[in-house]
Design a protein around this nucleic acid. Structure first.
Length: 614
DNA sequence: GGCTGCGAGACTCG
DNA sequence: TCACGAGTCTCGCAGCC
């Protein structure tokens, strides 16, 4: 492979005459991964015969502008641009105002589609797929301190583009052989731009609110520790500092399960469960058990909640220079096809007793609104569609309350069938009367069955005997006769092929089905069936969000941006002048993103503060 | 004695 | 072992200098 380093405009123009710009790979080098501060250091390009590295650190201002302009033209007109982890390179190009075609190919996503269980980093793929000897591979850590204009660094940058190109050659054939082309080109590639946009957009932070929460939580943590120490008859240890204020240090580390277990057992005679490793456990079940009778535990509960909120969330919310917080999104982070992100676990309003709603830190920028759209009742609708159970499908088509239906059969509530319709005048009354039963049917029977629960698991969560749980399961399968055959069929297919696919073709390989360990093989079967639901909806969300991106492009005045995806929810920001109009358009797009046997209704709400929407 | 890496445990979400 | 899929924080231990 011929290698060229481009350090000025002349060299760039010479390079243009030598290369084939129909299909090529691209890789960017930047000073930082953080969008706010990243600066472009170089771009490598490879067409299979020639690899070039454009060293931006050595370019003069004029040359840089000309090269960017020229690159933009090339990238926009290319037949195909190949990248490993496309959202990242797209993000860099966007920041540098370098345009690019929609015809992109992300080798990382291709690798992940072909084998969801394998590692997908470029270096890992080079070793595994391209058989590059491990000794020839340098990790970023090994080159990060090198001079950016050294031959060693150039070599590193060349390799990234070469391997990316070679991975395209291999994986593009793999996609054809495995019948993954539609999923890859029609769903995954348009979605790469959604991932790019979310990482670019970020979400606006209310720094005053964050400061307020931080002060509140610090006080709660301090007070609860004081109370706990008092219960133990121990004093704070005061460390004197010559220059700074005195520091209070607790002699007990209340974050240490080991120390807590000793205190709870010896001082308060608490009985603690043990973990697999035979350590004592101090989790929420212990706290729930003792918090009404042991004061120490009551304070520990408050302490834990406050520490969690402060360290995991409030402390992390540091805005970029434009006041926005940018999360990370990984398209290959799960085996079922969902995306993973550090913004998908924000505590909900009622998750703590401290009166602190972490989501209130996220707000709309000035003149903007936030819109939250979510698919309601996804798991059960997924179960109905995947199993094609007639009773369940009819319930969704005719707006019958399924949780109440399950409660009615399993708990023998004797509610007449007509009152299970949401449209029946008595429905609300019945719903209120059997609120607890409905809640249990929803969370302890219906959902767990979509996850493939066992009678043992159900008996634990409902606190009934295994026999009783089995009775519920049997009643459920009797009520919805299509479900069990669907699970069995999925298991048989898994046994036969070692993998299953979703309706849109996404694979899940589960070798454990062949394990002689009954638990392992049973688990594989549960995972397979759940994949059909979870994996399908992951792609429905991909289609929906990519369609919304098109909607945004068609209506530039709306200033519509996608900020977050949370499995069944999309968060947008838009110009508040058009909010109502946009909500209607988004609802229409989401509800029709993909045709299932049953309707897929979307709840849509808007407001200025994320925590207050809905 | 201090640093780093890693697994376990605890808690958050859909 | 006992329900699917994730991320992040802290502790505590092992291994290294």
């Amino acid at each position: 492979m011929k290698k060229i380093v481009v350090k000025n405009l002349d060299e760039f123009q010479r390079f243009l005459t030598k290369t084939n710009f129909d299909i090529f790979s691209l890789d960017t080098e930047t000073t930082s991964l953080d969008y706010d501060i990243m600066q472009l250091e170089g771009i490598s390009l490879c067409d299979g015969n020639l690899v070039a590295y454009i060293d931006f650190t050595t370019l003069k201002k004029f040359d840089k502008l000309e090269i960017k302009k020229s690159l933009s033209n090339l990238l926009i007109q290319a037949d195909l641009v190949i990248m490993h982890n496309a959202p990242f390179d797209l993000k860099v190009l966007y920041k540098e105002k370098i345009g690019i075609t929609k015809n992109i190919y992300c080798t990382m996503t291709a690798i992940h589609l072909l084998n969801e269980n394998s590692k997908y980093g470029l270096k890992d793929c080079a070793v595994r797929v391209l058989k590059v000897p491990k000794s020839e591979i340098k990790k970023y850590d090994e080159v990060k301190d090198l001079d950016r204009s050294s031959s060693e660094f150039y070599e590193y940058a060349f390799n990234d583009a070469i391997w990316t190109y070679q991975l395209w050659e291999k994986t593009s054939l793999g996609l054809i052989k495995n019948d993954l082309e539609d999923l890859f080109y029609d769903i995954e590639m348009p979605f790469q731009f959604v991932l790019r946009d979310m990482e670019i957009n970020g979400i606006y932070l209310d720094t005053e609110q964050i400061k307020k929460f931080d002060i509140e939580l610090t006080k709660i943590i301090d007070d609860s520790q004081t109370f706990m120490l008092k219960e133990l008859n121990i004093n704070w240890y005061i460390q004197s500092n010559f220059l700074d204020d005195d520091e209070k240090i607790s002699p007990v580390n209340f974050n240490s399960t080991k120390q807590l277990a000793e205190i709870l057992r010896n001082r308060f005679n608490c009985e603690l469960p043990t973990t697999k490793k035979e350590n004592y456990q101090v989790d929420t079940s212990v706290i729930q058990k003792y918090k009404d009778t042991v004061k120490f535990v009551q304070y520990l509960d408050i302490y834990r909640q406050a520490c969690k909120l402060k360290s995991t969330y409030i402390k992390k919310f540091i805005p970029d220079s434009d006041g926005r917080y940018r999360g990370s999104f990984n398209n290959c982070g799960t085996v079922t096809g969902r995306q993973s992100s550090n913004l998908q676990q924000l505590p909900k309003e009622m998750s703590n007793d401290l009166g602190i709603n972490v989501r209130n830190c996220f707000i709309a920028a000035s003149g903007k609104d936030l819109i939250v759209a979510d698919y309601s009742g996804q798991e059960l609708r997924g179960l109905a569609h995947v199993s094609q159970d007639k009773v369940m499908m009819e319930a969704f088509l005719e707006d019958i309350d399924l949780h109440l239906t399950t409660a009615n059969t399993c708990f023998k509530l004797d509610i007449p069938k007509e009152k299970l319709y949401r449209t029946h005048p008595d429905y609300a009354k019945v719903c209120e009367k059997f609120k607890t039963e409905r809640y249990d049917a929803k969370n302890k029977i219906n959902f767990p069955i979509a996850y493939g629960t066992t009678e043992y698991g159900m008996s634990k969560s409902l606190n009934v005997t295994v026999e009783k749980a089995k009775e519920y399961l049997d009643l459920f399968f009797e009520t919805y006769p299509g479900v069990k055959p669907a699970i069995t069929e999925c298991s048989n297919l898994l046994r036969k092929k070692g993998c299953v696919r979703t309706e849109l073709g996404r694979y899940r390989h589960l070798k454990a089905v062949y394990s002689s360990n009954k638990y392992e093989s049973g688990k594989a079967k549960r995972q397979a069936f759940n994949h059909r639901i979870q994996g399908l909806f992951a792609d429905v969300l991909r289609i929906a969000s990519a369609n919304c991106l098109e909607l945004a492009d068609e209506n530039p005045d709306w200033d519509l941006r996608i900020l977050l995806l949370v499995h069944d929810e999309i968060v947008f920001e838009c110009n508040s002048k058009y909010t109502e109009e946009i909500k209607l358009a988004i609802k229409e797009i989401l509800e029709n993103a993909y045709k299932l046997s049953i309707p897929l209704p979307v709840d849509i709400n808007s407001g200025k503060i994320y925590g207050e929407i809905k």
